[in-house]
Amino acid sequence: MDRRELADFLRSRRERIAPADVGLPAGPRRRTPGLRREEVAQLAFISAEYYARLEQARGPRPSREVLAGLARALRLSDVERAHLHHLAGAPPAPAPGPSREVRQSILDLLDRLPRAAAFVTSATLEVIAWNDLAAALMEDFSALSRRDRNLVRRAFLDPRPGGRRLYGASDPDEFARHAARRLRATAARYPDDPEVAGLVAELLAGSEEFTRLWHSHDVSAVPTLRKTFQHPLVGPITLNCDALDIADRDQQVVIYTAVPGSSSEEALRLLSVIGTQRVDVPG
């Protein structure tokens, strides 16, 4: 526990919050910037004396419950909350399960890529956000249940609509290997999450291919940098594939783009028009 750094950090976070931010009146005699110590203590459900000792670098190591109260009272971001725990000598507990909440800035990014098919996957490869072109290229994810938006399940268990496995992509077997490896790594990061455990059990029970890949214990995945989709309306579309990690959410943004001036770029542009006419998909 770094008492001095913890004290300075708490004070700096307290002084940046205006009383109105937490529903408190400013009052005519307020002489300190931000909140008073006793106000933070009240919001965190701890004693004012104990909080004062923390800011004076004299307090004992706070419990996880106290740290959670302070993080809530001081309106800390995820990064700040983790920093608070490390300063207190109590590293934050791992997340109980994969996050499905997509940051607004990422949702805005998807909308700003009208010439690219882009979507976000969780740590279990569930598609949790997408743009119109991704829906037109692959399928209308808004019409599917959460279960059917999981790409690992689609790779190993689901029937192939129109005889096309994984939307007619040219690398279904390689993607299946990639998905199994990612899911094994995910299961290690979230060993107590029932949803992850249930997905693995379902796949083991329903797919010999997944069982074989699972028992290989491979966790490293080689990304596919280019693939071709056999689309039922516009024919083959060859696209570059890039995956960008969102580390703090354990998510990925997958972006498919065509080479400028190529026939695939024309097909993708046509598909964007056809897709917006066929389906109404939120970004």
Rank of each mutant, 00 (worst) to 15 (best):
P282L: 08
A155Q: 01
L43N: 05
E5I: 00
D132Q: 15
G168P: 00
A73D: 03
S77C: 01
D192F: 08
R100C: 03
D148A: 13
E265T: 07
I17P: 10
A188F: 11
P96V: 10
E101R: 15
K227A: 12
M1N: 10
R64A: 15
A135S: 14
P159W: 01
Y256L: 11
R61W: 07
R61L: 04
R75C: 08
I46R: 10
W130V: 02
M138Y: 07
L137S: 06
L151H: 00
D111F: 03
S263R: 15
E174F: 04
V196I: 13
R269K: 13
E265F: 08
A117H: 07
G34H: 06
L233F: 08
R115Q: 14
A205F: 09
A197M: 04
A180I: 10
T121R: 13
T186G: 10
L70Y: 02
A48N: 07
I106S: 03
D242Q: 13
R146I: 06
V254D: 06
F9M: 08
A179I: 04
D193M: 09
I128C: 02
G206Q: 05
I128R: 02
P33I: 01
S263P: 12
R37P: 06
P28G: 09
L151Y: 00
D218T: 11
G275F: 00
E15I: 02
A135G: 12
F119R: 10
T124F: 03
A243Y: 01
T228K: 04
F141P: 09
F45R: 14
P91G: 10
F229I: 07
T238L: 05
A134R: 04
V79W: 07
L133E: 03
E208H: 11
S77R: 08
H217N: 12
A267G: 13
A73R: 07
H215E: 12
N131C: 07
I17A: 02
R164S: 09
R36C: 00
M138S: 12
S47Q: 06
R181L: 08
R177F: 03
M138F: 09
V279L: 14
V196F: 10
A68T: 13
E209G: 08
R184I: 07
D248N: 06
G283C: 15
L151F: 01
E174D: 13
L151Q: 08
I274P: 01
L43P: 02
R164Q: 12
E55P: 08
E39S: 10
R103N: 10
A187W: 08
P159H: 05
D140F: 04
L110D: 04
A41H: 11
E139V: 14
R153C: 01
L157N: 05
L199P: 09
D140T: 06
P282G: 08
C241M: 11
R182C: 13
E15W: 00
I255A: 07
A20V: 14
L76P: 00
R147H: 15
A20P: 11
P19T: 03
L157P: 11
P114N: 05
S63D: 05
D173N: 11
P159K: 06
D173K: 11
E101D: 14
S142W: 04
D132V: 11
R11H: 06
D158N: 13
V120R: 02
L113K: 01
A71L: 02
A129T: 04
A88N: 09
Y256N: 09
S207F: 05
A135R: 05
R36F: 01
V200G: 07
V234H: 02
R36A: 02
L67V: 04
